[in-house]
Design a protein around this nucleic acid. Structure first.
Lengths: 137, 137
DNA sequence: CTCGTGCTTGACGCTTACGTAAACGTAAAG
DNA sequence: CTTTACGTTTACGTAAGCGTCAAGCACGAG
């Protein structure tokens, strides 16, 4: 194994905010809610790769319309320690629930996309009508 | 054409609430926000098929995590009158925007589902380890 | 007439997810 | 030393999406 030296980069709160296009307030709020736990150097927050990944996951969860509470359970699944059997079984159950939820959403999206296609077709037709009528006047 | 007599059914607010599993308050709230416009017989609300369909669309929008404002623009697209050219062009633009949004969501969902698969696999493996260890003790 | 059932309109309350100051610390640059 | 940039906490404000009374009408059954 090569064991390449990764510099183990860190980020300031402002850097993360810029990169993900959120406000500092938002990032601190997520910390308040226990979703992020950056290192502290004195009073200053220092974000490690783990924190950055978590922020990414949180924001994706938001785009999907999950509440922060739901996001918390999801994100925590990602870096859960192996733990004991009860924990694992619970986790597997959560996964099943989440998956069902997401699949419902996917169906909703498919339906909506199809209906948008129809509405668009109708619009295009109406538009064409308008223009041919105008041309023949 | 057969021109089958459709009874043009109507519903009470409670019937709709039961069918879609929402509260009366919710339905009235949507009306307040201009999302529903039931007929009034005296003071009583009477819901026609159109209203019922709209409620269905609203709730699907909610499942998708859209705000009521966004849902309003979507739902209004469905029964928009042909209208004039400017309107149609605007509508087509809205459709494009909505579609982009939904496709982003779909990608987010796919990613999340895949990652859930991985987390699940890890869990299953951990569980297996635990059990074989226990068996060999 | 009275009761119960279902509907109505306010109006206040609550949670979520932040926005928006206010007031202060720290550290490098001019 | 002062300014500037960047960070901090505390705390009140707000918009969305309802929940939850309160108070009242309408109507059929008993």
């Amino acid at each position: 194994m090569h064991n390449i030296r990764v510099p183990a980069q860190t980020w300031s709160i402002a850097e993360l905010a810029t990169e993900y296009d959120v406000t500092l307030r938002t990032i601190r709020f997520y910390e308040d809610r226990g979703l992020l736990t950056p290192e502290r150097r004195g009073t200053v927050r220092v974000y490690h790769p783990r924190d950055k990944v978590r922020l990414g996951l949180i924001l994706r969860g938001k785009r999907l319309g999950f509440s922060l509470d739901e996001i918390a359970t999801i994100v925590d699944m990602y870096d859960a320690e192996p733990g004991e059997e009860g924990q694992l079984v619970y986790l597997l159950d959560q996964i099943t629930t989440r998956r069902a939820d997401l699949e419902q959403r996917r169906r909703d999206i498919e339906e909506t996309l199809h209906e948008l296609d129809e509405v668009e077709a109708r619009c295009q037709a109406d538009l064409k009508n308008l223009r041919t009528q105008r041309a023949s006047s």
